[in-house]
Structures are given as structure tokens and as C-alpha cells.
Write a protein that binds this DNA or RNA. Structure first.
Length: 495
RNA sequence: GGCGGCGUGGCCAAGUGGUAAGGCAAAGGUCUGCAAAACCUUGAUCACCGGUUCAAAUCCGGUCGCCGCCUCCA
């Protein structure tokens, strides 16, 4: 089956054919490290994490590069506000970013270059552009001459005369064309600065990504991703610089852009004051619930990350979790008898599992339609739940085999989306209840209470059993009596 | 003003030519000491108008409404 992706450049879905057979080289614009990231940023990294995971699943060898923009006006401003060195700010938020990525269970890039460590490459590029007449220096600044690049505007679908530069911002009088953008900025005293042929200064934002992506991935790499707001001017400028410098095209084969995040119908923005940080959300919701929410909408569409949406996603996530728990419990119970002969019904169920896999892949092959893929997963969940219910009434000899197969498929599909990853499950169960440094763990005490409760229930002492359940719930621990036995889970204090 | 997107059951959201996936919520039922979970059952003709077609939510034209980008931004 072939994969098709929507390419912003052509505005169509195209068959995905990488530069090199079997390999995918991708670059996603990383954070400017001057602040904690919000869920809008989080969504972007989540989306490309899943794209990356799926490509790996498809058998591609994926090489994923994501930069850190660690020199920038915003960082400098922040540093001035807080009376700290820009580098200190950058390192702090860089570490916080990595923490948030881990929290969301996003796989780390193969390489995460810092802009400040790639300055020589940028200077080299800028010099090349000046030599070829694509750029000009004025008072220590260097600007890219947009009129010199014929393809300017091809990504965002605008032409130079359509654009009304200066309508909302003061135009720098030194620019030949108002749309010309800075490749190099002369630095003021006290700002981070590097020696260059044009004097002390620092790189413009756009050149960073070009230099880093070209350095690690080379011209014509496969996927360049980012949020829709980066299409113009950031990515447009990257193309201009890179193709002008290389004297060839394309800079990138496929441009992928994700849609925005809204909070209760409104665009999330600083001016509206409705920014939600990734770390705030992760305090209240499991990472997988956040992932599920993000993936239940196609990546190019806008999505709402309000509290209602998050609560809903958490319940949906619990449905997946419950099904896996039930399967695990079923498989853990020693069967009365086992035999490989499946009933007709079981043969059909097993066959349908392959069908679910096929449909999942079909959905993902269609421009990473995770929403559809998740629909398939839930259909599978329904099938498996129904089957387990049937087993309750009439146990069949092949049940362990059939259930196990179903579980494998379910887990496999979830894993492709980065859900229920083994590392994540372990981390969360560990964090669920704080352990004491010495003495018995909270977990073992809960288990003990549940044992007592089971005895009470057997003796029909329901008042005692309910007391234990109620009191635990008050402590944030929910106890469910499943047919497989009791299950507890840390869900946080009752609202 | 330019460019682009969207409008599908109570809410969210797939589907882009053959009579509408999935999630959440709601109601009834099964199961259960109870609660929770699970299972079953129940609902939309797809903003509006016109056109193309044997056939349209899905194509074309128009109308209305909402949104994003054009400035740093995921």
C-alpha cells in the first residue's frame, strides 16, 4: 500500500516517495527556548512524533532532526527582564522542553542541534548569498533580496505584489524591498554576538533552520514540518535562502503543516491570556489522554484543547485502558483447558483482527489520518470486549490464543500512535503513588486494604467493603470490581 | 484588500460520487450486594439555494456564517 501525504507546496495529496529508497530524512522546526511550551507547540511535536513513528512502522529508516533556537530577540528580552544571561534563559527552557517532550512520550530527535553551535554554517551561507547577489549588507545587517529569487512566494501561494508589507509594521528604510528579511543582525552592546565579515552580530531566525537542516540532511530532504503559521514567512524564506544558495531545487520534497489549537473556540494566544502550558496539562491528565485528544482530529484541522475536550479524551482513553486491563486479567487467569481448535466465531474474530490492522494502515496511509485510525482501534475494542463477555458465559478452549492475538493487535496499533508505550506505562504507575524512602510502599498498603476488602465482601460485610472503597476514593484512588477481581487506579482527588 | 480553510446527530470528529466510522453525553435493558466498568439497543440526509449526474454530504456556481495567515508565533 502506498502512502500519500498532503504537500503544502502543491496543495495536493501526493504519493510519498523519499529521496532515498527506504529512508526518510525529516526536519521539524524546534522551539525558541524563551518560555515553557504550550499545548499549541505540544500538538505540533505530537503530530510529527506520530508521523515519524508511523514511517518507522512502515519500514523506513527515519532520520529526524529538530533544532533549538537558542539565540533570538525573545530570549534576549526575557533575559533583560529577569536580569539573567541569555544563555542561562536558553538552557533553562531547553531543559524544560526536553522534560515536556518526555512527559508527552515524544521520541527524541536523532540530532537536536543548537543554533549557537551552527553559526559558522550560517555565516558561510550568508556569505554565499551575498556573493551571488541574493543578499546585501547595510550597516552590519545583511538582508535577503526577495526580488532576486524568482520562486519567492511559491510555498504560501502569494506573489510579491500581493503582499502588503509595512501595512502593520514599520518598514526598515534601508531595505531594497519591504519584504526583504534579515539574514544577519548587527548586535547591540551586551547582546550575544559572533564575529562575521559584516561585523559582530547574530543570525536572523530563518537562516538558522536552513543552515541546520542543510547541514544535517542535505538539499532535497524529504519532510519539513511545522505549524501552519510557519508557512509564511518562515518556511517561505527558508526556501528562498536555501535554493538560492544551493542553486538547485527543491530544498524540501514534502512540506507538512499542522493546524492550530483553540481553547474553547478561541485561538490560543498570549493577548487573550488563554495559554495552556504542556506541563500544566500533564499535571492533570495522563499523557496518553492528551495524545489521544490530539490524534482524534486530523493534524491539518484546528483542534480545541479546552477542559471539556480533555475530560472527554480522558474517558475515551480509559475505555482503551479498560479493554487492555480486561484482556490482561483474562489471560492471567489459568484456563480450565486449552486447545487450538477455534470455533467458527473465533476464526471470524481472528480474521477480523487482520482486517482491523489493514484498515488502520489504510487510514494512516491517507495523509496520516489518525482520527480514522483511532476509529478503527475503537471498533476493535468493541469486538474484543464483546468476545470477553461471551467467554464469561461459555469458555472455549482456544480462548487464550484468540484473546492473546486480539491483545497483540490492539497493543500494536496503539503503540504505533505512541499510546501505551511500555516506558510510559511504567513511569506513570511509578508516579501514581509517591513511595516512601523507607518502609512499605503506598502500593503495597493499598493492595493490603484491597485484600481485606475482598475478605469482607466474601463474608457479605458490605458496609466494611464500601467503607474501604469510599475512603480510598477520597484519597484519590478509585476501586472497581471487575469480574476479574478488584482494580485500583490513582485518579486524583474527587472534584 | 489578498491567500487559505471550515460549516456533518446534544457536543467532538472521520468520510470527498453510490444512500453517513469512531469518541463523549443521554435514555432503556443485561450483568453486579451496591457503585464503577463491560455488553446490547435507540438518533443525523450532512449551513442554505441552484446546477451537473442514473446517483452528491462528497463535483460546479451562488448565498449566509465562522476561522486562520498576510507581523514574532506550533
Amino acid at each position: 500500500m502506498s502512502l500519500v501525504v498532503y504537500n503544502t507546496m502543491s496543495r495536493h495529496k501526493e504519493e510519498f516517495r523519499p529521496r532515498e529508497e527506504g529512508k526518510v530524512f525529516m526536519y521539524v522546526c524546534g522551539p525558541t527556548v524563551y518560555n515553557y511550551i504550550h499545548v499549541g507547540n505540544g500538538r505540533a511535536y505530537l503530530v510529527f512524533d506520530v508521523i515519524r513513528r508511523y514511517l518507522s512502522y512502515k519500514g523506513y529508516e527515519v532520520f529526524y532532526v529538530q533544532n533549538f533556537t537558542d539565540v533570538d530577540d525573545k530570549i534576549i528580552n526575557r533575559a533583560n527582564e529577569e536580569g539573567k544571561a541569555p544563555e542561562e534563559i536558553a538552557r533553562h527552557y531547553e531543559a524544560a522542553f526536553l522534560e515536556d517532550m518526555r512527559g508527552l512520550n515524544i521520541l527524541p530527535p536523532d540530532i537536536a542541534p543548537r543554533a549557537t553551535e551552527t553559526i559558522p554554517r550560517m555565516i558561510e551561507m550568508i556569505r554565499g548569498l551575498v556573493d551571488k547577489g541574493y543578499a546585501y549588507a547595510v550597516d552590519g545587517d545583511v538582508f535577503f533580496r526577495v526580488e532576486s529569487f524568482a520562486g519567492y512566494g511559491k510555498l504560501s501561494g502569494r506573489s510579491l505584489d500581493e503582499m502588503r508589507a509595512g501595512e502593520r509594521v514599520e518598514v526598515d528604510e534601508r531595505k531594497a524591498n519591504p519584504m526583504d528579511f534579515a539574514l544577519w543582525k548587527a548586535s547591540k552592546p551586551g547582546e550575544p554576538a559572533w564575529e562575521s565579515p559584516w561585523g559582530k552580530g547574530r543570525p536572523g531566525w530563518h537562516i538558522e533552520c536552513s543552515a541546520m537542516s542543510l547541514h544535517y540532511l542535505g538539499m532535497g530532504f524529504d519532510i519539513h514540518g511545522g505549524g501552519q503559521d510557519l508557512v509564511f514567512p518562515h518556511h517561505e524564506n527558508e526556501i528562498a535562502q536555501s535554493e538560492a544558495f544551493a542553486g538547485s531545487e527543491p530544498f524540501v520534497r514534502y512540506w507538512l503543516h499542522n493546524g492550530f489549537v483553540n481553547i474553547q473556540e478561541e485561538k490560543m494566544s498570549k493577548s487573550l491570556g488563554n495559554i495552556i502550558l504542556v506541563r500544566e496539562i500533564l499535571k492533570r491528565y495522563p499523557a496518553d489522554a492528551v495524545r489521544l485528544l490530539a490524534l482524534q482530529t486530523h493534524y491539518r484541522n484546528p483542534i480545541d484543547f479546552g477542559p471539556e475536550a480533555l475530560d472527554e479524551a480522558r474517558r475515551a482513553y480509559e475505555r482503551l485502558e479498560n479493554c487492555l486491563f480486561a484482556l490482561d486479567a483474562f489471560l492471567a487467569k489459568p484456563p480450565d483447558m486449552t486447545a487450538p481448535q477455534r470455533t467458527q466465531r473465533e476464526v471470524e474474530l481472528s480474521d477480523s483482527c487482520f482486517d482491523f490492522e489493514r484498515r488502520f494502515e489504510e487510514a494512516m496511509d491517507d495523509d496520516f489520518n489518525t482520527a480514522r485510525a483511532i476509529g478503527v482501534i475503537f471498533e476493535l475494542v468493541k469486538e474484543l470486549n464483546t468476545y470477553l463477555d461471551e467467554q464469561e458465559l461459555y469458555q472455549t478452549p482456544a480462548a487464550p490464543m484468540v484473546a492473546s492475538h486480539g491483545r497483540d493487535v490492539l497493543l500494536k496499533l496503539c503503540n504505533i500512535l505512541g499510546l501505551f508505550s511500555p516506558a510510559q506505562r511504567e513511569r506513570e504507575s511509578r508516579e501514581a503513588v509517591v513511595r516512601e524512602e523507607t518502609g512499605p510502599s503506598a502500593e503495597s498498603l493499598i493492595e493490603l486494604l484491597l485484600e481485606v476488602r475482598a475478605v469482607a465482601r466474601e463474608g457479605k460485610q458490605f458496609a466494611t467493603a464500601d467503607l474501604i472503597r469510599t475512603r480510598l476514593r477520597e484519597l484519590g484512588i478509585r476501586v472497581d470490581d471487575l469480574r476479574e477481581g478488584q482494580r485500583w487506579k490513582y485518579v486524583g482527588p474527587p472534584a
